[in-house]
Simulated assay, not measured.
Amino acid sequence: MAELPRPDFFELPVADVAAAQAFYGSAFGWSMTGFGPTYACTLTGDVDIGLQADPAERTAAPLIVIQVDDLEETLASVETAGGSVTKPIFSFPGGRRFHFRDPDGNELAAHKPD
């Protein structure tokens, strides 16, 4: 039996990736991998944390990202259940994802790793 989808990533909007990496490294000992000048994340393979500093990409609040087996099927299920897609499926280093709002307005994302 397939595992149920679960949150496996939290993305935090930040103003400065280097400053945020320094803070979380100092406060919690987190080691992060940089993916360009505006993004870094932990790569533990469990529940990871991303830091998004690109003003065009960062969300207004922390973004919960749910790992799924079938991205297109999940997008259809989200819409059928009453959610609205805020960012269509796109590729990023490590996989593909889309963003959506639940009926209460919370923004989340679903992703399928490579």
Results as ranks from 00 to 15, higher is better:
L12Q: 14
D46A: 14
E79N: 07
I49K: 08
M32R: 00
A27W: 00
V65W: 05
G50K: 03
S77Y: 08
P13R: 12
A61T: 07
S26G: 06
H111Y: 00
G25L: 01
A40I: 09
T74R: 05
F35Q: 13
A15W: 02
V65D: 06
G94A: 11
E11I: 12
V17H: 00
W30E: 00
P93Q: 13
T44G: 15
T74M: 06
S77I: 07
P62F: 04
P13W: 07
L63D: 10
F10I: 15
L63F: 09
P113F: 06
T86N: 06
V78H: 08
A81R: 09
I49F: 05
S31I: 08
A2M: 14
H99R: 04
Q21W: 00
G83K: 07
A40G: 03
P62L: 04
N106E: 10
R58C: 03
F92D: 13
D70R: 06
R101I: 12
P13F: 06
D104V: 14
A19I: 08
V68P: 04
P93L: 11
C41T: 15
C41E: 13
S91P: 08
C41D: 15
A19C: 07
L4R: 11
L63I: 15
D114N: 15
I49T: 10
S91Q: 15
A40H: 01
W30V: 02
H111E: 10
M1I: 14
A2L: 13
V65P: 00
E11H: 10
T86K: 14
L63N: 05
D69T: 08
S77K: 15
D54E: 04
G34H: 05
T59F: 04
H111N: 10
G45K: 05
T33A: 11
D102R: 09
F90D: 15
R97S: 15
F23M: 09
D8R: 11
I64K: 05
F28G: 02
